[in-house]
Structures are given as C-alpha cells and as structure tokens.
Write a protein that binds this DNA or RNA. Sequence first.
RNA 1: CGGGACGUAGCGCAGCUUGGUAGCGCACCUGAUUUGGGAUCAGGAGGCCGCAGGUUCAAAUCCUGUCGUCCCGACCA
Length: 565
Amino acid sequence: MRYSKLFAPTLREVPAEAEISSHQLMLRAGMMRKVASGVYTYLPLGWRTIDKISDIIREEMNNAGGQELMFPIIQPAELWQKSGRWEVYGAELWRVKDRHDRDFCLGPTHEEIATSLILNDVNSYKQLPLMIYQIQNKYRDERRPRFGLMRGREFIMKDCYSFDRDDAALDVSYHLMYDAYVNIFNRCGLDFRPVKADNGAIGGSSSHEFMVLAESGEAEILYCDTCDYAANVEIADCGKAEIVKEAQLPLEKVLTPECRTIIDVAEFLHMDTMKTMKALFYMADEKPVLIFVRGDRMMNEIKVQNYLGATLFYMGTEEDLHNAGLTQGFIGPCGQNVRVLLDREVAESANLCCGANEEGYHLKNANFGRDFQGEVGHFRLVEAGERCPDCGGSLQSARGIEVGQVFKLGTKYSISMEASYLDENGKANPFVMGCYGIGVGRTMAAAIEQNHDENGIVWPKAIAPFQVVVVPVSEKSERQMKAANDLYAGLREKDVEVLLDDRAERAGVKFKDADLIGIPLRITIGDKSLDQGLLEYKERKSGASGSLDAADAVSEVLRLLEGIE
RNA sequence: CGGGACGUAGCGCAGCUUGGUAGCGCACCUGAUUUGGGAUCAGGAGGCCGCAGGUUCAAAUCCUGUCGUCCCGACCA
C-alpha cells in the first residue's frame, strides 16, 4: 500500500471523548471513527487488524474442528420466546418491528438460531459432534457503552456453538475450544489468563473467561501465586482461614442510638468491624431475603443470586424494607422472620455484634446456632491476600479485559427449544451444547491497551495492519524513491504487508505517523546511508536500530521480521 | 436507569458572568523558502454557536424544553 493513497486520517490531539489509551490511539491513528454512542466505523487500518485477528481465529477454530457459516443478524421473536429469553434478556435486547408490526431483534448472540438450525437438520448421533461458528456483528443495547470498542452497542464477535451427545463429549469439545482460545490469544501476542467465571444470563454449568491483563480492565480477577487457580472475583472461592477459638459470651442488648452503619456501630462500641456483621436486604423474585456478611466484608451478589436461583434480583428499596417489617440500620438475624442467608464466616465466628431489630439497639455476642439460624453458604467477595481454595497459597488481585468466554451450556437450550437427536437405540436425547465467544474488536483494543507507549501503538507483529513501513526521507529524491520502490516491490513479491510512505511530508511527520500507527519495522531510506550502500531500520517495540545492505535489502528485512514478535 | 459534566470549523479549545451578530491553535487549500523526529512566512477556504421555543430593538451569551455525547454507579464479547 502506498501511504499517499491510504485513508488513515491521523490526529495530533487526543479527542476529548476518549478516556482510555486504546480508544484514544485508535482515533488518533485513524483506525476508527464514532458514528453514534457505541457504534463505530472501522477505517482501513483498523479493519486490516480486525481482519488479521479474524484470520487467526478462523485458523484455530477450523483446526479445532469448527465449521464457519453465517447466521442472520435479524432474528424473529418466536425463537426467543421459545427459549424464554424474549422476556428474560430485558432492555439490552435490541428489538425491532417489520412493516407488518411483527417482532424481531438484532442478534446479541445466536444460541436460539443455532439450536433451531440443528433441530431441523441434525437428527442422528452419527452427525455428532458438530461445531459451527461465525464472525459477525452483534447488537446489545447497552445501558452504558464505554471506552470505544471495549463496550459497544454494535460489536464484532466470533461465536461458536458445539453440539454433542453427552456430557463426556461436551467435555472434549469444551477443551478443544479452550485450547484453541489459548492459541488464538497467544498468537495475537496478548498477556492473558483464563479464569473460572460465572455463567450469567447465558446459563449452563461451567465457564471460563479469557482475561487480558490490563489496568483499564473492567473485571477483577484473583489468581494464586503458587498454583494455577484463577477466577473472576465474582465467583472466586477461598480456602478456610484459621478461626480463633473463642468462648461464647452471653448475649447482650446494648443501646446504640443513631448508629446506622457498621462503622458507626464499631466506633460507638469500640470494636473492630470484623467483630460485627452487616445485613444486606434484597428482593429475589419479589420475595425479601436478608444476607449477613462480616462487617468488614463485601457481599457477592452473583453468588447469592446463583444460590437463590433468582431471575429478578435487586437490592430492596425503602418501600420493600418497610413491607418486610425491617428497621433500617438495626437489622439482625436473631428472631428474624425474613429468609436469612449467612455467609459461612458469620456462622463460624463467635460473639459478633448485630442489629437487634429494634430502633436504637444492637446485640453483642451473637452466636450462630445459639442465638440465630439461617442458611449458611459462601456469600461474600473474596479479597486479595486470602488463601487459595486449591492449594492454600496466597491469592493475588489483577484487573483484566474479558476478550473471550467459553461456556458449557448443557441442555438448557436444547430442552427449551426441543432439539434432540436419536441415539443407537432410537431413543431421543437433547443435544448437549457449548458456546464460545470472542470479542474481536475488544481483542484489538485489549492488544493496544497492552502494547503502546507515549508515541503510539506498538503492534504485535501478527496483528499489525502492516509489518513494515518503508520511509524515503524525501519523496523528491529520485534515488531514494528508486530504492524505496524496489524494496517495496521486492517485499510485496514475498507477501510481506508493506506500507510505502511516498507522501510529500517531512521525514519527522512520517516517523511520527509510523510510530503512531505502530508498524513493527521501519526502513528508512536517506542519502547519507545510501551513499554507503546502506538502508536503516528501526524496530518499533525494542527501539533497536541499525543498517542493512541496500543491495540485499529484501532478504535482510525478512530476516529482521523473523526476529520480531 | 440514578448521579455529574459537556455540546461553538475535521480535532483541541476561548468567548457566555456583564446580550450588540464569532475567535485562537492544529489539520486543510495556494505560493515561496525549507527538508533525518509533527518546519517558516504570506495568502485562503471552512461555523444557522446541537435543535426547538421564549425574553429582548438585539441571543453563542439569559430562560424553558428537547436531542446528543462523555464520566461515575447497578449489567455483559
């Protein structure tokens, strides 16, 4: 590509709307432009990288046995009504009507469509396993689109669906995909970690997320410093801490006027917050429930919701609180009429302080079993520094960008959509499914988050829009242009993606742009070195520079490229 | 959806308090001089000041509404 013809409008200044590096750099490097909130045009440079990532994904998916196809974006409401998600998915589902006032949606994901395809065209165990995937735009009417491509309303996703005859076969498919994902993100040059994850709205039995480690990541992960345990904080577990044995003291009711928060109470009674418990009041499918965790801990909504199996789950309003007959600020588990969930730490600790269910009073030395009852479980967020649940090592915290997720769906969709196959005995069984997603644009953004410096993007070679940029210092110098054109032609012949900066710009501008758009290798052609029969190179990432023989430039460049990651 | 902020040229901003009909830097076009890390000078093009009402002789500026955008929280590739 000749730079003079390339449509890549670079910006010197950072657009005010962009907050994080990847968003700023994609705009500055002329890779994309915003059309509406969470909706973007990919310009040629951005699209080339999207293409490179897509190609890597395709190769690995095909190697794992996947077959590419293309589902429609527009999907009829009936399919979603059948699976039950037309109601459950909520406002995020982008609903549209046709001219006959019939309901459709723009696909946020394709479990329904995939299942309905298989339901019609796959009938026998002999056709299994089957793995189908596509790379396509997805639509989610996000409450808050954010950070450019990180969270858009329209985004490019690779989604894959596996159909197997039983759980054991699903295991095989799942691991094939898991390994393919590891390969994909490695090939994209990303520093990432697969972590255990919640299944969320998609449902199913188990799941892993692939997290690219970055400070700007929206997710918090915990990983063990000793073994390979790693999990999203939403579902992270921890090993047991030693409980200091303590004799149970008599229950005592104390006056605590105006002490409505844990901090107030702890200060007023001169005790540590870890000797208190706090009450969280939620509505689960319209029924009130109280969750108690130690005063210094945070409740884990996901774990509680999963435990309750609730679809509608939200923190109770003051009205809900009133209806349940609770006194805000003084809620305790003793003699409680509302359903009580106790974090296991609360059940295991002795002599905690809790609300007395009476305005202005708390109870000291409350003990599980003796003074209060409840369903015990793991209902709190695990924190960095706690014990690894697998090996007892220390858990570390990191932030990550979720670029992919693999799910074991089981029979959730095949049962609701009545998709089954006949086994050897002629008996109908529901397909056992898995689904596997990769955010392609998000992967690109994550790669930039992880690979940039003050001058711009530093692309990993595998996903750079061009591998080499050839920069003649002056486009007016005939011999520079001759050398540049020769090298350009030679590299193209070797299938190297090369950009020839033939613009009538000063060298400084060309260098700045080359750095900004992040081309891994730059070849500079100037009179000084040409006089000695040499060209100059500079590696974007390492900054390493030197000369190479002009007469043998093509093979020298190929050799240099070999050494760049 | 709750909280906060902002909409003035492609991008970054000033002007608004105290109303008088729009300005700066970058980018863009022409010419000259330059030419190895975002050149200099001269000339030029580009804006219904988000939109709609209202107040006023007069509105970018004051008032109301509306739309859009961004950030923080609850949700997810």
